[in-house]
Design a protein around this nucleic acid. Structure first.
Lengths: 160, 160
DNA sequence: CGCTAACAATTAGTGCACTAACTATTGGAG
DNA sequence: CTCCAATAGTTAGTGCACTAATTGTTAGCG
């Protein structure tokens, strides 16, 4: 009885909003992305668009699918995002390279040039958040661990 | 020259997608929320709706603004969310308590009863993610630190 | 060769999240 | 008491993110 009452109390405590990791995680994510906003606005990018540009600065041209996999997002999320980046004049979208199915996403001169402004962003953000490079590294490592944890159990439902 | 080349190389590395904390954070957030999905589906809730219900199970009735502040979200985000929870039969929305401006958001019997199913959620998720209570606590603490970091620098633009 | 299964991207539809604009109410200062 | 600034909530509009359905293309199998 005492044991079951203890377990019940534990479960009740587990429902407290302030203790939810998922809550802290979503708030942290929104807060950090929000902190990027004024910085990225000067480049004319939203945060998801910034991530796509990071992808392309590393390797371009590349396919939509390749970007979608690198960002761990559905192709249907990336597609309209690329359309807006094309409208903004940063990327090109052509059906080329001998395969009519795939889209070759490339950089315009403006898109390539934007990188010169973007190199300052990580440093600016670290300063704004008051984080050291070591703290950023530790947090990054924690997040990677969490991502790995979800890969095992939620991708393929465990017991069904 | 060597120093400046070193700094430039550092900045270039800082733009690597795989090193971005903001990227790891958003992926982790989406992954964890995604892991909740099959579990919360059985309760008929989305993840944001689950957070609202946690709020209400702690204290009800309460105003929209109070929920909005507890969840660190804009009232305009909460408003339609409450409408959908009302349609689902979990909450009530009335203009009452002597102040016609404020909305009293309460629980229906179904909404209150849902808590009995929800108490199992945190434990289920911990198991699914393969995390110990200690790991969850450590991650939670990291997230709170990150949220605190954003509160200082991005809320009020620093130098302008 | 022709058919079909797999694949790449887009579109449609739902729900979040945010800013800005709007409505309605309240409460306090003159 | 009256006006007016502050407050509470909703609505409009944009952009993300996801699932499911659709279109078009490719490649492989008989």
């Amino acid at each position: 009885m005492t044991v079951r009452a203890g377990a019940a109390r534990q479960q009740d405590d587990d429902l407290l909003l302030e203790q939810q990791l998922c809550f802290a995680l979503t708030v942290a994510s929104r807060s950090v992305v929000g902190a990027y906003k004024p910085v990225l606005e000067k480049l004319g990018l939203t945060h998801p668009q910034y991530l796509v540009m990071l992808c392309l600065w590393e390797s371009a041209p590349r396919t939509l699918r390749s970007i979608s996999e690198a960002l761990a997002q559905a192709p249907a999320t990336i597609s309209p995002l690329l359309r807006r980046l094309e409208e903004a004049g940063f990327v090109t979208r052509q059906r080329a390279d001998g395969n009519e199915r795939t889209l070759a996403v490339g950089l315009t001169p403006a898109g390539a040039a934007l990188r010169q402004q973007a190199v300052a962003v990580p440093g600016t953000m670290m300063e704004r958040l008051g984080l050291t490079r070591e703290q950023v590294g530790a947090l990054h490592k924690s997040m990677m661990g969490l991502i790995a944890a979800t890969a095992g159990s939620s991708g393929q439902p465990v017991g069904e």
